[in-house]
Simulated scan of single mutants.
Amino acid sequence: MKKLFVLFMLCSFAVFAEPININQADAETISKALTGIGPKKAEAVVQYRKEHGDFKTLKDLENVSGIGEKTVQQNEKNILFGDSAPAAAEKIDKPEKPEKPQEPKKPK
């Protein structure tokens, strides 16, 4: 049981990671906080941000060389764009279907 607990703790440390502000974090912080992004990709994120300005959406991150949709999806809960909630919470939901107008009831 003790071994299982230790194994669980070692495997799940990333689950408890704090979200980072992708527009303020340095390359070291990015590489430590995000899954699938090592030092080279993290440096590419910082360089892209310097050349093109702040990231506004998760889709913007896919413009960085070496970072694709899968990597972004794996990390969406840990990415902030400002002092707000994680990027995953900022996704734009599909608009709801408008309700059908009720037809007036015909008198009997």
Rank of each mutant, 00 (worst) to 15 (best):
K41S: 15
A42G: 11
E43Y: 06
A44V: 09
V45Q: 07
V46E: 13
V46S: 11
Q47G: 09
Q47R: 14
Q47I: 08
Y48H: 11
K50A: 14
K50C: 08
E51C: 03
E51R: 02
H52A: 15
H52S: 13
D54V: 00
F55V: 01
K56I: 14
K56Y: 06
K56C: 05
K56V: 15
K56N: 09
K56E: 14
T57G: 02
T57V: 07
L58N: 08
K59H: 13
K59D: 14
D60P: 01
D60M: 04
E62V: 02
E62I: 05
N63V: 01
N63P: 04
N63S: 11
N63C: 05
V64I: 05
V64R: 05
V64S: 06
V64E: 11
S65R: 06
S65E: 14
S65T: 06
G66W: 07
G66C: 05
I67K: 03
I67D: 13
E69S: 13
E69I: 10
K70F: 12
K70D: 15
K70P: 08
K70T: 12
T71F: 07
T71S: 10
T71K: 10
T71I: 12
Q74Y: 12
Q74K: 12
Q74A: 12
N75S: 04
E76H: 00
E76A: 07
K77T: 15
K77R: 12
N78Y: 12
N78I: 08
I79Q: 01
I79C: 03
I79P: 00
I79H: 00
I79M: 02
I79Y: 02
I79E: 01
L80R: 05
L80F: 05
F81Q: 00
F81C: 00
F81L: 02
G82L: 01
G82R: 02
G82N: 09
D83H: 04
S84Y: 11
S84H: 10
A85V: 14
A85W: 07
P86D: 04
A87F: 03
A87T: 03
A88T: 13
A88F: 08
A88L: 15
A89I: 07
A89H: 06
E90Q: 14
E90L: 09
E90P: 01
K91Q: 13
K91D: 12
K91G: 10
D93K: 08
D93C: 10
K94H: 14
E96Y: 07
E96G: 10
E96R: 03
E96F: 09
K97R: 12
E99T: 06
K100I: 15
K100N: 09
